[in-house]
Amino acid sequence: MSQFKSCIDACQQCVVACTECLEAMGGKKSDNDCPSCCAQCIDICEACVKAMARDSKYASQFCQLCAEICKWCADQCGQHDHDHCKRCAEACRKCVKECESMAASAA
């Protein structure tokens, strides 16, 4: 599992940032897919962490999908000026980088 450590860490940090963003955006009007993207990002990041922790033969596919969803979330939250959205977008970008790297190395 040590080969997954940096990717697992990035996914876990993304879950925290997306959860904070989702909570902060509760009840606020948004002109894009934030905070819906955060909920979907949380789900795939958690699934990705579990797949890597199990050393699943599908971990690279989970990571590829995670990278795609995190790109979308980074784009959506990155359009907002809220601090929590900026933190979320940055965590998503880091997760994209780690997940793409992990998916490429496992392919």
Rank of each mutant, 00 (worst) to 15 (best):
C11K: 00
G26S: 04
I44N: 05
C21Q: 03
A10T: 09
S6W: 11
A17M: 00
C45G: 06
C34I: 10
V15M: 08
G27N: 04
P35M: 05
E20G: 03
Q40L: 14
K5Y: 08
V16Q: 15
C45I: 08
N32A: 13
S6N: 14
Q40C: 12
K29N: 09
E23N: 10
S6D: 15
S6H: 12
I8F: 02
C14M: 00
G26F: 04
A47I: 01
A10K: 02
I44V: 15
D33Y: 12
E20D: 14
D31E: 14
M25V: 01
C18R: 09
M25I: 06
K29Q: 05
V16A: 14
C41M: 08
S6L: 14
I44G: 09
D43G: 11
A17R: 12
A10P: 10
C48D: 11
E46T: 11
A39I: 06
E46Q: 14
I44Y: 02
S36R: 09
D43R: 13
N32F: 13
C48K: 02
G27M: 00
Q12D: 10
K29I: 11
K28S: 10
K5M: 01
C38A: 08
V16E: 15
I42G: 02
C7W: 06
I44E: 09
A10E: 06
G27V: 04
E23T: 13
C45Y: 06
D33L: 13
D33I: 13
D43L: 05
C45F: 11
D9M: 12
C11A: 00
I8Y: 03
E20W: 05
E46C: 13
E20Q: 13
V15Q: 07
L22R: 00
D9R: 12
D9E: 13
A17S: 07
S36C: 07
L22P: 01
Q40G: 12
N32V: 11
T19M: 10
C21E: 01
C41T: 14
Q40W: 05
S6Y: 10
C14G: 01
I44L: 15
C21R: 10
C34Y: 06
A39N: 09
I42E: 01
Q13T: 08
D31R: 14
A47F: 02
C38T: 01
A10Y: 02
A24S: 14
Q40Y: 06
S30H: 07
M25C: 04
E46A: 11
A47E: 05
C48F: 00
D31F: 12
N32L: 12
V15L: 03
C41S: 10
C11M: 02
C18V: 05
C34E: 06
A24R: 04
A47D: 04
S36D: 11
C45L: 03
V16F: 15
V16I: 15
L22Q: 03
E23I: 09
